[in-house]
Computed example of a mutant assay.
Amino acid sequence: MPKEKSEKKFRKHGEIQKQGIFFNKDLGQHILKNPPVIDAMIEKAAVRPTDVVLEVGPGTGNLTVKVLEKVKQVIACEVDPRLASELEKRVQGTHLKSRLKLKLGDVLKTDLPFFDVCLANLPYQISSPFVFKLLLHRPFFRCAVLMFQKEFAQRLVAAPSDKLYCRLSVNTQLLARVDIVMRVGKNNFRPPPKVDSCVVRIEPRNPPPDINFNEWDGLLRICFVRKNKTLSAAFKQTYVLETLKKNYEVHCSLNNIIIPKDWDIKEEINKILTESNFENKRARTMSIEEFLQLLCVFNSKGFHFT
């Protein structure tokens, strides 16, 4: 009689089933299964017995259960009702149940609760929007230890002139200290993803830079649309000139400034870039300090990016 397999595996509509549970890869459901990796993530977060921990995408609770043993409360945000049910079953009838607060739904569509530490094996498709949401969250949290796909993690820490340096790199490093603390092979997950992952530790800068973040991000969007082009070329795009002209007219109206009839937006922008020696700079090589200086120059001339 053939030996029974202890674990079933088959595909159905892009899902993988193991031990009776379907994991939907379209939702980024790659469950971290290696206990030493989980322990290392908790260690890097340096959680305390009084901490409230936010976890996004807890899955079946491999990380959740270990964190619950060490902290006051875990707020677990899960979009999949099936996995939320599995997690509830896992702590049912144990002393850990009272420490778990389960929130069902899309974490990007709700306000984040108060928490001290964020710990998560994050679904890959929400990585970028969640990082921005996290960094703009108030009150400040102490740190976040998050699992990302390898290339995304490398973008977070990329320096000027690096191939992966982008708007995400600049925004993250403006608002936080960020480091890759561990590399994790794809075979540590069930089902295994196509690429390796990295664990990143993020510590918000407190106090944050004294700037309007929406305006700052508006400037970066212009600069990084074509990060290898000069700023002079980036600011010649029609939609950029039209936006800046409209914003400038609003600024002048609010401050009782009369715009000369022969005033030309394109000439004015070129003049600002030339006089500040930015016309030949490229976003891919510029530091955070240079972007801050560029924003200051434009603002001093009445130009805004929101």
Score class of each variant (00 low, 15 high):
residue 130 F to Y: 09
residue 224 F to Q: 03
residue 107 V to L: 04
residue 235 F to I: 06
residue 226 R to F: 04
residue 125 Q to N: 15
residue 64 T to A: 12
residue 241 L to T: 07
residue 201 R to F: 11
residue 43 E to P: 02
residue 139 P to I: 04
residue 36 P to S: 13
residue 164 L to W: 08
residue 277 N to K: 05
residue 48 R to F: 04
residue 274 T to C: 05
residue 71 V to P: 06
residue 269 I to C: 05
residue 244 L to A: 05
residue 178 V to Y: 00
residue 228 N to W: 01
residue 208 P to L: 08
residue 262 D to Y: 00
residue 244 L to Q: 03
residue 148 F to S: 13
residue 63 L to S: 10
residue 91 V to G: 01
residue 13 H to L: 03
residue 89 K to H: 11
residue 85 S to M: 11
residue 129 P to G: 09
residue 136 L to F: 09
residue 189 F to D: 00
residue 38 I to F: 04
residue 114 F to N: 02
residue 156 L to I: 10
residue 205 R to M: 15
residue 166 C to A: 15
residue 287 S to H: 14
residue 79 V to E: 11
residue 73 Q to I: 00
residue 84 A to Y: 03
residue 227 K to E: 03
residue 229 K to Q: 07
residue 100 L to A: 12
residue 190 R to I: 13
residue 180 I to K: 06
residue 189 F to S: 00
residue 63 L to G: 06
residue 22 F to K: 01
residue 106 D to I: 03
residue 129 P to A: 11
residue 152 F to Q: 08
residue 40 A to D: 14
residue 15 E to L: 01
residue 275 E to Q: 11
residue 35 P to C: 12
residue 145 V to W: 06
residue 70 K to H: 10
residue 198 C to P: 00
residue 240 V to L: 04
residue 98 S to T: 10
residue 28 G to P: 05
residue 21 I to V: 13
residue 121 N to Q: 07
residue 255 N to E: 04
residue 36 P to V: 15
residue 200 V to T: 14
residue 57 G to V: 04
residue 47 V to E: 08
residue 39 D to L: 12
residue 56 V to P: 04
residue 205 R to E: 15
residue 245 K to P: 05
residue 297 V to W: 08
residue 36 P to C: 12
residue 282 R to K: 09
residue 120 A to L: 03
residue 69 E to H: 11
residue 158 A to P: 08
residue 165 Y to A: 15
residue 80 D to V: 00
residue 216 W to N: 02
residue 146 L to K: 08
residue 75 I to K: 10
residue 108 L to Q: 02
residue 73 Q to F: 02
residue 280 N to R: 06
residue 160 P to Y: 13
residue 90 R to F: 02
residue 283 A to K: 02
residue 129 P to M: 07
residue 225 V to W: 00
residue 113 P to I: 02
residue 170 V to R: 06
residue 258 I to R: 01
residue 13 H to G: 06
residue 45 A to S: 13
residue 148 F to W: 07
residue 221 R to N: 12
residue 45 A to E: 09
residue 216 W to I: 01
residue 56 V to S: 05
residue 90 R to W: 01
residue 81 P to E: 14
residue 18 K to T: 01
